[in-house]
Computed example of a mutant assay.
Amino acid sequence: MNKPKKIATETDDWQALKSYTAARIALGRTGVSIPLRESLQFKLAHAHAKDAVYSCLDNSGLQEALADTELPIYSVYSQAANRDIYLQRPDLGRLLSEESARQLHDLNASPSQLSIIIADGLSASAVNTYAPLVIRNLIDAARLAGYTFAPITLVEQGRVAISDDIGHILQAQLVIMLIGERPGLSSFDSMGAYLTYAPQPGLTDERRNCLSNIRDQGLPPAVAVSKLMRLIDSAFRLQLTGVSLKDTDGSEPDRLPIG
């Protein structure tokens, strides 16, 4: 019986570029198709991304990991009752449930400078992995700088704008939200950090600053903390966040011209 003829895999001229990116380039070619190995890896990446979207916030694990911050930690919910509604109705993920709003109002929180919020977003697995390390180091750095903190808030089925309601209720001058980002086929575990000065309901995204792709293979957590501290210091000095503020190492102005 004749064995099937093995088809050689042709290499790609862009092979040298693979060392600079995790993007799917220079996959090679077997006949008129990509190699079987690359096809299977694509399916695996798609499965990882789908799993990330439906992953759950590990409330107990996060509370345990953040216990040494000695800050109160509260769990709240958006108006999206479940994951399917969350994905179909982004507007509901931006609003606190009535029960959660009452819970935070009942705290009668004293005014503070910083409010840290953790939300599942579109990849709770990313937040479960990277939020504790970022938050612990950020709190240590911010305390050394003299900042005060509101309680930490964990949000299920939350989107970025829900931080405006939370920060406003807790009377915080600036909110820092860590949230799972939309997973890609080469980054299913990416976390974003959003900063908003003077949070209040109804703000839009131009009032925020964002650090994206916080993960070991992207923006390392230690570097993210350093960037966050520069942004926090600049936000309080200029009393703003958003399009008029950018991260800088001090070598150039951190406020962008308007107009």
Rank of each mutant, 00 (worst) to 15 (best):
Q173G: 11
L96R: 01
A161W: 03
A101N: 09
M177S: 15
A150G: 11
N82Q: 04
S125M: 07
I139Q: 06
N108Y: 12
A141V: 10
D189F: 05
I116T: 08
R94W: 04
S78H: 09
F149H: 09
Q157W: 11
Y74H: 08
S125F: 00
V76T: 01
D189G: 02
Y130K: 01
A142S: 13
E206W: 15
Q173W: 04
I85T: 15
A119E: 02
Y74C: 03
V160Q: 00
H105E: 10
Y74R: 07
Y86Q: 00
D106N: 15
R94K: 12
V175Y: 00
P111E: 01
E99V: 15
N108T: 09
L170H: 09
I169P: 12
G167F: 01
A80S: 15
A80T: 13
R94V: 01
L92S: 09
A193T: 10
A126D: 10
L170E: 04
A172F: 09
G202F: 12
G192V: 06
Q171M: 13
D84T: 10
V155R: 03
L138T: 12
S190Y: 06
D84R: 10
A109N: 13
G167K: 02
V160C: 03
T129A: 11
Y130S: 00
L95N: 10
H105Y: 12
I179P: 08
L107G: 03
R182P: 04
A119H: 05
L114D: 10
G93W: 11
Y147F: 13
G121R: 03
A145I: 02
R83L: 07
T148A: 00
R143G: 10
S125N: 07
Q103K: 15
S112G: 05
